[in-house]
Design a protein around this nucleic acid. Structure first.
Length: 162
DNA sequence: GTCCCGTTGGGG
DNA sequence: CCCCAACGGGAC
């Protein structure tokens, strides 16, 4: 998975979404719930639960994982059942679901702010090209020479990933 | 159960 | 600061 894709015409799409995504060494999240067992300070009142500080785990997805997710997200904004599970066996379903949710929000927010509108909030069309900005990524969907109903599509996706 | 939405908190 | 995974809660 490179950071640059260009597949012409009706992309059969890599579809390899599974396989290859070698598991990165660490892959999983930070050491979960590591605070000491905290020997109960014994005789405290029952309902006086001292705030057991739950440390939020901050997962950072690996680049290959993001690549797969992004690629998928371009086509499906909604995670259909557990399909993507296979490509990310190290990640929980909840994590993937959360990623899609956040991505949807990000997409929406990005559109609200940065989508090029022509007067009426519709996608801007310039010549033969439709500029298509799903979110922070750049995508250009062009429809060159539409001879009768066979829209030839050319997808050009850039995945910066920062 | 998932979704949306606002919010929280970890980490660069 | 910002980014973003994860959380909480209400709605369906």
């Amino acid at each position: 998975c490179t950071s640059f894709y260009l597949f012409p015409t009706v992309s059969p799409l890599p579809s390899s979404t599974d396989l290859l995504i070698q598991d990165s060494p660490d892959s999983s999240t930070s050491p979960e719930g590591k605070q000491s067992a905290s020997a109960e300070n014994s005789a405290t009142k029952k309902e006086d639960k001292v705030p057991v500080k739950k440390q939020k785990a901050r997962t950072v997805f690996s680049s290959p994982q993001l690549c797969v997710f992004n690629d998928r997200f371009q086509r499906q904004k909604y995670l259909s059942l557990q399909k993507i599970q296979t490509s990310s066996r190290d990640l929980s379903y909840k994590q993937v679901k959360t990623w899609f949710q956040n991505q949807r929000m990000k997409s929406k927010r990005w559109q609200r702010n940065n989508w090029p509108k022509n007067s009426n909030g519709v996608t801007q069309v310039t010549g033969n090209f439709i500029l298509f900005f799903p979110f922070s990524d750049l995508s250009i969907l062009s429809i060159p020479e539409t001879h009768n109903s066979s829209h030839r599509q050319l997808w050009l996706s850039l995945y910066p990933f920062r």
